[in-house]
Design a binder for these strands. Structure first.
Lengths: 247, 247
DNA sequence: CGCCCTTTTGAAGAAAATCAAGGGCAGTGG
DNA sequence: CCACTGCCCTTGATTTTCTTCAAAAGGGCG
C-alpha cells in the first residue's frame, strides 16, 4: 500500500490510464495533506462545495442519501484508493453525503490544482473521466440486481471482493469487509434482518461466508453463478496492469 | 424545438453552462448529421466503441442492460435534447445498450471533434461533465426509491415530467410519455402487471394519470408528496435560464 | 461486570411476483 | 367493410419474497 497521499493518488490514476513522465511530474507537484476521520463521522455532506478532491488511503466509507422518512440509502462504498469529491472539478455541489464507516485516513488535494492539471494533461483528464465512469457502471449494476435478495447480496460481495483485489486488499479468496448487516441492507434496499437470513443461506450453501468482518469466498464458481457476477463491467476502464491483478 | 442537430447540441450545452462567443463559434464549426431510427431498433450496443456523440432530436430512447436470464433492466430514459455515447470521449466501450423506444431522429457528432473542443474550451468540457453528473444524480435517485412501488412509480413520473418541462415538452401538467407499462416496469424493477395496478391506484387517488401515452398531473402537490419528489436534484447542474423554465 | 451495538431467530403480515385469462385497439389483408 | 392478428392493458387468484415486530443471544469495550 502506498504510504503517502500522493502515492495513492498516483496509483489510482495509473490504474486508469498510462501516465507519461510529464504527467507523473505534474502529480508530484501537487500539494496534498492527510487527515484522520473517526468511524461514523462525515467526510462530505450533501450541499458541500468541496475545495478538495479526497483520496481514501485507509478504511472504508460510503456514499449515501437520506429519504424523507429518515431512512438511509447507501449508493456506493469507497475502499482504499477511491476518490470522492470529483464533483468539485466542475464547481458543482455534492448531491449526496459521504460518511466514514471505519476510522479513515484521507488525503486532500486542492481541487483547483487538479482541474489545472486535468486541463494541461489529457491523460489525467481521461483518468478522472474513467473514475467517474466506473462509479457509474457500478451504480448501474446496483440497479440491475434488484429482483432477488440472494443474488443481490451475492453480487455485492463479488463486487467488493473484486475491487479489494484490484488494490491489493484481498488474497486467497479472503478480504476484510468492515460492514454491519444494517449497512449492507441500506446499500441493497433490504432490511438488516433479511440480510442476515440471506447471509446465512449463502453460508449454508457453501459458496461464501461473510462474518466477523471477514469475507471468505469458498466456492468462487458457485458464488459467481448465484450472483450472476461478471467482472467485465469493472475492467474496460482499467489499464492492463490493473486488470492482471484481478487474477 | 431546435430544427437542426447543431441547435439541439448548442441548446443542451447552453442549459448546462454559460457559453462564450468563442464557444458558440467552435460548436458552429462541428460536423453533424442526422439519421432516423425506427422503434425498437438499437442506437448503441454494449461493447460498441462509438465514433460519434449522439444527440436525441426527437423521440424517446432507453439505456438498458440484459440480465443473464434474459430479462431487461432499463437504467435510464433519454428524451429529446439528451446525449448518449459520451463514454467515447475517453475511448471507453459502451457498458450498456441504448434502444429507440419510439421512432427517433438522432444527430451524430464526431467524437474526436467533441474531445478537441472540450480541450480548448473549458466551458464545454464542464458542460460534458455536468451532463454526466446529471445522469449520475438520476441514477442515484432511482436507487433511492426502491422500497415502495407506489412512490417509485410516482417518482419516475415526476422525473419525466420535470425533464420534459426543461426542454419545453410539457405544459399545464401534461406531457407525452410514450412508454409501455412493461418498459416502466423494466425501469423500476417491477412487473408490468404490478405497474398496471399501481398506475390505477395513482389514477384513482387523483394525483396523476398515465394512459394513452399521456401523462396528466392532476394534483402536483399530492403527487410530489406521494413520490417524495424534490426537483432540487435536477437543478444544481443547470444554468439559471434552464431552471427558470421549471416554473 | 455491565452496557451497547450487532447478530440471530421466530412468527405474523404486507407487498409484489407469478400464473392465467380476457378485453380493447390499431394495423393488415381479404 | 369486416375479420384477423398482434400488442398492450386489465383483472383475478395464488404463491413467494421480504418486512415488521419482538425478543434473545453474542461480543467488544469501558
Amino acid at each position: 500500500m502506498p504510504k503517502t497521499c500522493r502515492d495513492a493518488f498516483t496509483n489510482k490514476l495509473a490504474s486508469l490510464v498510462t501516465l507519461s513522465e510529464a504527467d507523473l511530474r505534474a502529480i508530484e507537484g501537487l500539494k496534498v495533506d492527510v487527515r484522520q476521520i473517526d468511524r461514523r463521522r462525515p467526510i462530505l455532506t450533501q450541499g458541500d462545495l468541496p475545495d478538495y478532491i479526497y483520496v481514501l488511503l485507509d478504511g472504508w466509507a460510503a456514499r449515501y442519501e437520506l429519504r424523507s422518512d429518515g431512512s438511509r440509502r447507501i449508493t456506493g462504498f469507497l475502499i482504499p484508493g477511491d476518490f470522492c469529491g470529483i464533483h468539485a472539478v466542475c464547481h458543482a455541489a455534492m448531491d449526496h453525503s459521504i460518511i466514514a464507516l471505519t476510522k479513515c485516513d484521507i488525503g486532500r488535494i486542492p481541487v483547483d490544482a487538479v482541474a489545472d492539471i486535468g486541463r494541461d494533461h489529457p491523460a489525467i483528464n481521461m483518468a478522472l473521466w474513467r473514475a467517474k465512469l466506473i462509479e457509474e457502471a457500478i451504480l448501474r449494476k446496483w440497479l440491475l440486481f434488484s429482483t432477488n435478495a440472494r443474488a443481490t447480496v451475492a453480487h455485492l460481495l463479488c463486487e467488493l471482493y473484486a475491487r479489494a483485489a484490484i488494490v491489493g486488499l484481498a488474497e486467497n479468496g479472503r478480504c476484510g469487509v468492515p460492514l454491519t448487516q444494517e449497512e449492507v441492507g441500506d446499500a441493497l434496499g433490504l432490511t438488516a434482518v433479511h440480510v442476515n437470513r440471506v447471509l446465512r443461506q449463502l453460508r449454508e450453501g457453501g459458496s461464501v461466508d461473510l462474518s466477523h468482518q471477514q469475507l471468505v469466498i469458498k466456492d468462487a464458481q458457485r458464488l459467481s453463478h448465484e450472483a450472476r457476477f461478471d467482472r467485465a463491467y469493472l475492467e474496460p476502464w482499467l489499464s492492463e496492469n490493473a486488470v492482471s491483478l484481478l487474477g
